[in-house]
């Protein structure tokens, strides 16, 4: 079960800040990030990508789930 970072309802840059904070001191190899809008999805994806993580996006009923792994 990957660790979940819940960024639902947060507006940027908070989801990116939270994700980066987590990834910079990453103890796990996979994370699951929940966001509720396309802006947060794109920004988190770009931020994680630029830090060298692989990102896959899945649409959920209430937003998006990003699976991040290294």
């Amino acid at each position: 079960m990957p660790e979940t970072i819940d960024c639902r309802g947060l507006s940027c840059p908070e989801p990116v800040l939270k994700t980066r904070q987590e990834l910079l001191q990453a103890s796990d190899d996979t994370y699951e990030i929940l966001v509720s809008n396309a802006v947060a999805r794109d920004n988190v994806k770009r931020a994680a990508g630029s830090m060298g993580w692989k990102v896959s996006v899945e649409e959920t009923g209430e937003g998006f789930k990003l699976e991040i792994s290294r």
Binding site: R8, G9, L10, S11, P13, E14, L17, S36, E62
Partner: peptide, 13 residues
């Protein structure tokens, strides 16, 4: 402020 955790909180539908 953002780095120290400033947030206006979550929005809802």
């Amino acid at each position: 402020f953002l780095r120290r955790g400033f947030t206006l909180g979550r929005s809802q539908d």
